[in-house]
Design a protein around this nucleic acid. Structure first.
Lengths: 248, 248
DNA sequence: GACTTTTAAATGTCTGACAAATGAAAATTG
DNA sequence: CAATTTTCATTTGTCAGACATTTAAAAGTC
């Protein structure tokens, strides 16, 4: 592990990269203890604050964890699915909100991915997943539900569908696609009729999954995609028309 | 933006979380300049090194960038697709390598997701994507190619397939699934016969995509999945048998 | 032997300082 | 006056040294 002191890049960034390579490359294994900050500072010929900045960078990516005390130090962290989920969601959400990704593009990606899960979910879904889907459908039918609560329930419904596939890697990959859509969906006002249509489609999906009919599930998902995109389009069109009148 | 000095969590972690919330929540917009380190230290009642550790955490997630000089400082960063890709790949790779995810589980997820892209790719692929796929197939047919180069070419082929869908969000989501498999694939030794079978399947996929036949593309992908899983199974079985003899 | 105290090692934080980069203002020059 | 150069203030990057806090192991005590 070497760094180049004459490089224009920050020393702490270089050190973080060097250690990261060692972890990704397998030279440092899970739960192994890194040298102490003082030893690292010595090794890289930098000061302790610089080493600390490097370690904080790695901690931010959940690559290491630190522990105080006599036997403390920095340890290579086992990246849990949970940590990976939340990183994935944060990244996806920011990516969509900061890059003027159109609603259609995000929606298309999300439903394409969900249709990839549907056959597996239809095949393997547990009673638990079905129960969650039914419960969320019921919640969505309640009158007086705020738009945000409706969207949150929508996310939970789709998560149950994805988790039903019983493949944690798939669940992880889909987490970003499903959750990152929520802020976009929150921009939509759902009328009672819109909600009824969505609930009906959710019911079709749940029925298809329960009947282990993957074709029907995919078809229902496609219809839901069309419904969602149409809904968004009319909302955005109305908004654009209004702003044209307000500020000609 | 407030922090709790009596909390057991690191101050730098708390400060990072507070700023992150402001970015994700939209209080800080892209390219906006954060207060200087000295001002932040003042605001949070901590020292500058502590603030710096917090900022490095955010920089590690590409949430901010820093610039030196008179008008320098920390700026909210527009998360580029490129940055998001590489974060996604790092996270996915570590998740697979650290969590004893079976080859089958990872493989199933990957091909399920690719089949989600295939219809869109068949519909929209540009001549460029087709050319890349053909070129990689040609490279894979070269004798004397190392196993690692073969795997790298495999990844490039599949990336072209995914990018053919013309949906950057989909490409981003798939990047992790495709690239994270490479280390697992690298554990396999490909015989000439294995390679021929894979090249034949790749050709079938490319032909189907060129003919805009999404059903054929999905079918070929399913066959490739079966081929890959079978291959991995026999390799791992042979390895297990050998180690049983070596160390009874 | 069980309990308490001490101690050493490690991270967490602070203070103060200097170096280096950088853009803007001021001074200089044609 | 315009163009160029110089100066300068601001800000991040780095360093050195110190103290606080936490933690587990070692030493001491009953």
């Amino acid at each position: 592990m070497k760094i180049d002191p004459s490089s224009p890049a920050d020393l702490s960034a270089q050190i973080a990269a060097a250690i990261r390579e060692s972890i990704v490359g397998g030279q440092l294994i899970v739960d192994e203890r890194l040298p102490s900050e003082a030893e690292l500072a010595d090794h890289f010929n930098v000061s302790r604050p610089t080493v600390r900045e490097a370690l904080k960078r790695l901690a931010a990516q959940s690559l290491i964890r630190t522990q105080r005390g006599a036997t403390g130090g920095a340890f290579v962290n086992r990246l849990s699915f949970e940590d990976a989920y939340s990183q994935q969601i944060t990244t996806s959400t920011l990516l969509l909100s900061m890059n003027a990704v159109s609603f259609d593009t995000a929606c298309e990606a999300r439903y394409a991915l969900e249709r990839a899960c549907a056959p597996l979910s239809a095949q393997r879904r547990s009673p638990d997943h079905l129960a969650t889907m039914r419960a969320e459908i019921h919640r969505q039918s309640q009158p007086g539900l705020t738009d945000e609560a409706f969207c949150a329930s929508d996310v939970d419904f789709h998560r149950a569908l994805v988790d039903g596939a019983g493949n944690p890697v798939l669940s992880y990959q889909l987490a970003g696609a499903v959750e990152a859509m929520q802020p976009l969906m929150n921009m939509i006002t759902f009328t009672a009729r819109d909600r009824a249509a969505i609930v009906a489609l959710h019911t079709r999906i749940a029925n298809a999954v329960e009947a282990q009919n993957s074709n029907a599930a995919c078809a229902a998902l496609s219809d839901l995609e069309a419904e969602t995109r149409g809904l968004a389009q009319s909302v955005f069109a109305a908004r654009a028309a209004r702003s044209n009148v307000d500020a000609p």
